[in-house]
């Protein structure tokens, strides 16, 4: 890693803008993390409104197959370098939805996760700890999930397509029914 890259990585670690994709119950832990009790802005982390502006994608909790589709769109709209934080046990192994037909179990199969925060729910301290860990990883140049995604795109795409096929309607389309009758 050249000296210029080290400098760039240092500043990237000091200024990480976050897009929180709040589908699950984990969203409730974020307002205290942002506001005066835990104040994550002192580490240069602020919530952003759109994927274009963000560096971190924070997935709080479970993802049903339909919301996974939106998360993949969102992830692909973000501009590199970008990092994904999996929040809560739902993103690790499905959590309490471990045997659900409509919820994905391992987020890492569909988009590259740089860091997981274990727990159900993780407290704001755990979230801030994870941001600190991610900052160190970024500054050392270890968090390279976005490059992994480009390199192994076929594998990720195949996994995504396998679950997206399940969102297709079970009943046959009307014209097919009339054709067969």
């Amino acid at each position: 890693m050249s000296e210029w890259d080290e400098l760039v990585n240092y500043f990237r670690g000091r200024s990480m803008w976050m897009l929180h994709y709040c589908t699950g119950c984990g969203a409730i832990e974020l307002p205290p993390t942002m506001t005066s009790r835990w104040d994550m802005e002192r580490f240069g982390i602020i919530p952003m409104a759109t994927p274009r502006q963000a560096d971190i994608l924070l997935i709080t909790g479970y993802l049903s197959i339909k919301t996974l589709k939106r998360v993949v769109y969102t992830y692909e709209q973000m501009s590199a370098p970008k990092w994904v934080l999996g929040f809560g046990s739902c993103t690790i192994n499905g959590g309490i939805y471990w045997d659900s037909y409509g919820v994905i179990q391992n987020l890492d199969k569909y988009i590259p996760v740089d860091l997981y925060i274990a727990g159900c729910m993780p407290r704001p301290e755990a979230i801030l700890d994870a941001f600190g860990k991610l900052k160190k990883m970024v500054q050392k140049g270890e968090a390279k999930g976005y490059e992994k995604y480009i390199k192994n795109y076929d594998w990720y795409k195949a996994n995504q397509d396998r679950v997206f096929r399940r969102t297709e309607p079970v009943l046959r389309k009307a014209e097919e029914v009339t054709k067969s009758a």
């Binding site: 760039v8 500043f11 506001t35 802005e41 240069g44």
Partner: peptide
């Protein structure tokens, strides 16, 4: 603003860091 909200707030050079990071990103 952070002090009015009773927060600690970012360092006052944070805006320069943000600008440097934004200019080093890929953009669409």
């Amino acid at each position: 603003t952070a002090r009015i909200h009773r927060r600690y707030g970012p360092p006052f050079v944070q805006n320069f860091i943000d600008l440097f990071k934004l200019l080093s990103k890929k953009s669409i």
